[in-house]
C-alpha cells in the first residue's frame, strides 16, 4: 500500500517529494521504496521489450532494464556533485541522490505505463524500427526524470547552465554506454541465439548510426553477431 502512495506522489509532485524527503530527514526510509518502485517499473518495461522475441529473452531483458536505470546514476552522481560545486551551486550529495532516485523511479513507472503501447507497436514494426521505438520511448520517459533532477538543484550559482548541460550530457553518455554494454534488449523474433550479454564490440555511437541506416533499408553485410552493417560513406 505504501508503494502505491509513493508511486502516486512521485508521479504527481516529484519536486515536492524531493523537498519532503529532505525536510522530514526520511531518506533512509524512502530510498529503498524508491529503489523498489524503480526496479518494478523497469522490470515490467524490460519484460515488454523482451517480449518482442519472447522466450528466454523476456526474463533476460527484465533483469537488465533496472540496471540500465541504476548503473548510470551510480556512476555519474558523484561527478555531478563535483560539477555543481565547481559552478558554485551548493547541493548536498544526499539531495542529489534523492532527486536521482525520484527521477529514476518516475522514468521507470512512465516506461512501464508506456509498455502496452510499445507492445502493440512491436506487432507491426520490423526489428530496426522496434529498436528505434524502444530508444525513443526511453528518451521520452527519461525527460521528466531528468527534469526532476534539474529542478531539485537550488537556484543561483555561477555558470549554472554549464553545470546543467554538463550533467545532462554526462547522464546521457553514461546511459547510452551502459545500454550498449548490457545489450541485447531486443532480439529478432526468428533469432535462435539468445544470450544474456553480448561481447563488447565497437561502441554505442557506431551502433546507433548502423541501426539508423538499416532502418532506412541501407545494408551492406552481416556482422559476426548477426547485426547488419550499413553501406554508406562516412
Amino acid at each position: 500500500m505504501i508503494l502505491i502512495h509513493r508511486a502516486a506522489e512521485l508521479l504527481r509532485a516529484p519536486g515536492a517529494m524531493v523537498d519532503r524527503i529532505e525536510a522530514d530527514a526520511s531518506f533512509a526510509e524512502e530510498a529503498p521504496r524508491l529503489l523498489a518502485l524503480l526496479a518494478l517499473g523497469a522490470l515490467t518495461f524490460g519484460a515488454v521489450v523482451g517480449g518482442y522475441r519472447g522466450g528466454l529473452q523476456v526474463p533476460f531483458a527484465a533483469v537488465k532494464l533496472p540496471l540500465l536505470f541504476l548503473v548510470p546514476m551510480m556512476l555519474v552522481l558523484p561527478a555531478l556533485r563535483g560539477l555543481w560545486s565547481l559552478c558554485e551551486v551548493d547541493v548536498s550529495y544526499q539531495r542529489l541522490v534523492t532527486a536521482g532516485l525520484v527521477g529514476g523511479a518516475r522514468t521507470a513507472l512512465l516506461a512501464a505505463a508506456a509498455g502496452p503501447v510499445l507492445w502493440l507497436l512491436f506487432g507491426v514494426m520490423d526489428y530496426h524500427l522496434a529498436v528505434l521505438s524502444f530508444v525513443g520511448v526511453l528518451g521520452l520517459c527519461g525527460l521528466p526524470g531528468l527534469l526532476v533532477v534539474a529542478r531539485a538543484v537550488p537556484a543561483g550559482g555561477r555558470s549554472r547552465w554549464v553545470a546543467l548541460g554538463g550533467s545532462l550530457v554526462l547522464l546521457g553518455l553514461a546511459s547510452m554506454q551502459t545500454g550498449w554494454l548490457l545489450r541485447p534488449f531486443l532480439v529478432r523474433p526468428q533469432s535462435t541465439d539468445v544470450v544474456l550479454l553480448r561481447p563488447v564490440e565497437e561502441d554505442v555511437f557506431s551502433a546507433v548510426e548502423t541501426t539508423a541506416w538499416s532502418a532506412l533499408g541501407v545494408y551492406d553485410s552481416e556482422s559476426d553477431f548477426g547485426r547488419p552493417v550499413y553501406r554508406g560513406t562516412r
Binding site: 530527514a25 526510509e29 551510480m74 550529495y93 544526499q94
Partner: peptide, 25 residues
C-alpha cells in the same frame, strides 16, 4: 538503519553512502 535500507545497500550502495555519515534520527 531499517532492514529495507540495508538490503537496498547490497544492490545500490553508492546511492546510500550519504547515510554513513549521519546518525539515525
Amino acid at each position: 538503519r531499517p532492514r529495507g535500507t540495508v538490503l537496498g545497500a547490497l544492490v545500490a550502495w553508492p546511492l546510500l553512502l550519504p547515510l554513513l555519515g549521519e546518525a539515525p534520527s
